[in-house]
């Protein structure tokens, strides 16, 4: 009778260990910033269905920016390519570790005549505080808060919990989508993907 009991205990231990291994989600956040970040845990990688494809005219929008302006696609038509960077939510681990990297790539974006428009579903005051904690960004950060996630939804990037996918949409100066990348929400898109998107605009 003892042997089966040991087996059950072992299976229980094995289960606990497996769970602890699965929950080891790799991420790295700036040390002085780390305590302010909300740990989301691992999320469903993708939770929406794209509503656009390469070659489509990009759905138009206007959104408030943290600089107090209203910014839309039309502001850049004919003059700049655009990379829309949708990130799920402010103050979360991977998102806080994505846009600061783009801060040192301004010359690369300039070479490709491309502006970044960063978009989340958070409201402007939240985004303002978050961007300050990142020590500022050179590109516009836009709030898709109200009507909630309307712009994200028009691209098919609004998740069922009201956040957005982690997605990059590259739009040329004529307003045509040239490259789409929807990343696993738990992972930062590699820089190689950003470069590939920029190259699609040539």
């Amino acid at each position: 009778m003892k042997q089966p009991r040991i087996s059950i205990i072992t299976l229980f231990l094995a289960f606990i260990l497996l769970i602890s291994m699965i929950l080891q989600i790799p991420q790295v956040v700036a040390a002085e910033f780390k305590d302010q970040i909300y740990a989301t845990g691992e999320l469903k990688p993708i939770d929406s269905t794209l509503a656009v494809q390469v070659g489509d005219k990009a759905p138009d929008f206007t959104l408030p920016s943290i600089a107090g302006k209203i910014v839309g696609l039309q502001d850049f038509m004919g003059s700049k390519n655009i990379m829309l960077s949708f990130v799920p939510a402010a103050w979360t681990p991977v998102c806080s570790d994505q846009w600061p990297g783009y801060n040192i790539l301004q010359d690369v974006f300039d070479e490709h005549d491309t502006i970044i428009l960063g978009i989340t579903v958070d409201n402007v005051p939240t985004l303002h505080s978050w961007v300050l904690a990142m020590e500022g960004l050179w590109f516009p950060v836009l709030s898709d808060f109200w009507p909630h996630g309307q712009t994200a939804a028009s691209y098919g990037l609004l998740r069922s919990d009201g956040t957005t996918e982690r997605a990059l949409i590259f739009i040329d100066k004529q307003g045509v989508i040239r490259f789409i990348h929807v990343e696993d929400i738990n992972i930062r898109p590699p820089l190689e993907t950003v470069i590939k998107g920029l190259q699609s605009l040539q």
Partner: peptide
């Protein structure tokens, strides 16, 4: 030094 290209403090 453990750093990241995406870390603003590492950049600073």
């Amino acid at each position: 030094e453990i750093f990241s290209m995406y870390c603003p403090i590492c950049q600073r």
